[in-house]
Design a protein around this nucleic acid. Structure first.
Length: 599
RNA sequence: GGAGCCGUAGUUCAGUCCGGUUAGAACGCUGGCCUGUCAAGCCAGAGGUCGCGGGUUCGAGUCCCGUCGGCUCCGCCA
């Protein structure tokens, strides 16, 4: 029954035929999307990368061809030779770009059959993701997924075009490199030629791109795979792609200009969206204060308010104790929307807060001038008055409070803010709000290790006027020259102006508790390079997967990666990772010490 | 490492709270009918290790314990 394509040459993509093509003889090849057999006339929707076209098989044209068409099933691969004809006005399909025409088949060749597919090749299916990943080749036939992959291609193309035009050189760096202890856990690759030693896959080409600046390449970029052996999230995969760049003799503004240019070009060319530049900027401290997050979604208000001052001497132990331990109290006033939340929904928010680590989520609802709240009794009259003024409380408002460490309060309330924003439709999903977040703290105190750690990475430059603070005991106030670019509450990139002087670099290593020897052992080659005429330089890395996710409206970066991993880091299609032969391990000098996994 | 949700025909789900005859529905699939549909329609049919293991019970999809897997989040992570 199967036939070869023979001497047929495809003339057109199914999805590209239009009324201009009426009268042409065409040869199409593609997949049977659906099959509508009326006993007499048979309609086939034929699909390829560019879309669908209706093919008509009529017994009047050819009895044999019509009979063959009757055997066709979904997802079979066929070649059709026929004539493009116009549809009569009442049979035009306005939902299809090809809906004004159809192809009347004169001949058909069945090139391949298909087993019955496990899920429909359509958008808006609701199928277990495991099944989609196991049959990814089918999942990628769905228009949404196909378009995502195409948008990704356009994004990469736009980026290359822009950067090439801006004087950047694309330079590759090795994937087999050395392990660097700071930052994420490395993926390791054993070295057969050096038994007992390992390469590491790069978490990012950070050190090497800085080295390229010392080499004098001036402007580098790379669209590069990075690897981090950490737990997965909806926006985090163990391997992901960065638009990585570095520039010499620049300040923050120079990098930001380039990034704005890249993003403008990406949005225009991959999505047909013209975005406004320059992007607004916000200091880290302000972002944390107003949104409780270093990546605020600025598409809606509902900002946090710090009301710690009101409860400094409160009788309410939960609040005053939190403050005495160095905590804070913040509130979210959902103005005028109290009526939109049922008691159950309020309780659910409380449960969500608890699962995030809060002890609870207090609330006050104002209706008809009355305050309703489980904790109403504990407030003094003065506190009520202060609250009313601070939060501008009015009828119809509902306020949520959290009192805890700054980290918990900000984390919990920023989550609640996003959940309320989504639930109550405060977010305009058609908007793209870009934001630069700048002046991150340089260092973060790690109570577990009792030392400061670099918040970004240890090559990030402090602000020039803050360098002297590296010698002080309290290093928490040192501001860095790091910046993040945030889109709709998603961090899509981060970078910094780097340290280029040995003396500053040494001070910083000292500040994070690294001895000279340790620093040499870990980053030796870069430190040495910095001693041979390193230019001032800086750069950034943009998360390609996240950018494409936001452009396409995907819920997860898995939907913009052709072959992603599950939360356990597995690929259901290839069944990676997998055990290997003992012989392979022997060759590498590796002996396993793993608890036997029950199968 | 931790919290939550989920796992029942090919697929999506109902049934699980409150154990009891032959586990249902829709879509898909198979066969038949049908000459203008486009989520085609009508008729008929097939299709189940209720994720896996153990326990309680006269009896388990349903209750208990464990385990595997998927998703979301915290921790972790540019």
């Amino acid at each position: 029954m199967l036939e070869h394509p023979g001497d047929w040459t495809r003339t057109d993509y199914c999805g590209e035929l239009r009324s201009e093509d009426i009268g042409r003889d065409v040869v199409l090849m593609g997949w049977v999307q659906s099959n509508r057999d009326h006993g007499g006339v048979i309609f086939i929707d034929l699909r390829d990368r560019e879309g669908l076209v209706q093919v008509v098989f009529s017994p009047q044209v050819s009895g044999a061809v019509h009979e063959k068409a009757g055997a066709l099933r979904d997802e079979w691969v066929i070649a059709v030779r026929g004539k493009v004809t116009s549809r009569s006005p009442e049979t035009v399909n306005k939902n299809l770009p090809t809906g004004e025409i159809e192809v009347v088949a004169g001949e058909v060749r069945i090139l391949n059959t298909s087993k019955v597919i496990p899920f429909l090749i359509e958008d808006d299916i609701n199928v277990d993701e495991l099944l989609r990943l196991r049959h990814r080749y089918l999942d990628l036939r769905r228009p949404f997924m196909r378009d995502n992959i195409i948008t990704r291609h356009k994004t990469v193309t736009a980026t290359r075009n822009f950067l090439n035009g801006a004087g950047f050189l694309e330079i590759e760096t090795p994937y087999l490199t050395r392990s660097t202890p700071e930052g994420a856990r490395d993926f390791l690759v054993p070295s057969r030629l050096n038994p007992g030693e390992f390469y590491a896959l790069p978490q990012s080409p950070q050190l090497l791109k800085q080295t390229l600046m010392v080499s004098g390449f001036d402007r580098y970029y790379q669209i590069v795979r990075c690897f981090r052996d950490e737990d997965l999230r909806a926006d985090r995969q163990p391997e992901f792609t960065q638009i990585d760049l570095e520039m010499s003799f620049v300040r923050e503004d120079d990098i930001m200009n380039v990034v704005e240019g890249i993003l403008k070009s990406i949005f225009s060319e991959a999505a047909g969206i013209e975005i406004e530049t320059p992007f607004p900027r916000m200091k880290y401290d302000e972002a944390m204060l107003r949104y409780g997050s270093d990546k605020p979604d600025t598409r809606f208000g509902l900002e946090l308010e710090d009301i710690s001052g009101i409860f400094r001497d409160s009788q309410f132990q939960v609040f005053s104790c939190a403050l005495k331990k160095g905590g804070i109290i913040k509130a979210l006033n959902l103005k005028g929307r109290a009526g939109d939340l049922s008691r159950k929904e309020i309780d659910d928010l409380g449960e969500a807060a608890k699962s995030l680590g809060a002890k609870g989520l207090a609330w006050i609802r104002v209706s008809d001038g009355e305050w309703q709240s489980p904790i109403l009794k504990v407030f003094s009259d003065q506190e009520k008055e202060d609250l009313k003024n601070a939060l501008r409380l009015e009828d119809g408002d509902i306020v949520f409070f959290a009192a805890d460490t700054p980290h918990i309060v900000n984390m919990v309330l920023s989550h609640i803010r996003l959940e309320l924003g989504e639930k109550l439709g405060l977010i305009d999903h058609g908007r793209f709000n870009f934001l630069w977040v700048e002046e991150f703290p340089l260092l973060d105190y790690d109570p577990a290790e009792k030392r400061y750690v670099a918040m970004h990475h240890p090559f990030t430059s402090p602000r020039e006027e803050d360098i002297h603070l590296l010698d002080e005991a309290d290093k928490s106030g040192i501001r860095s020259r790091a910046y993040d670019v945030v889109l709709n509450g998603v961090e899509i990139g981060g970078g910094s102006i780097r340290i280029y002087r040995k003396d500053v670099q040494e001070k910083l290593f000292k500040a994070i508790g690294l001895t000279d020897e340790e620093a040499r052992a870990k980053f030796g080659f870069l430190l040495e390079a910095l001693e041979f005429g390193a230019p001032p330089h800086g750069g950034i890395a943009l998360g390609l997967d996240r950018i494409v996710m936001l452009i396409t409206g995907a819920d997860s970066i898995r939907d913009v990666i052709a072959f992603p991993k599950t939360q356990k880091g597995a690929c259901p299609l290839t069944e990676a990772p997998s055990p290997v032969d003992t012989a392979q391990l022997l060759e590498l000098g590796i002996k396993l010490d793993v608890k036997e996994k029950k199968k």
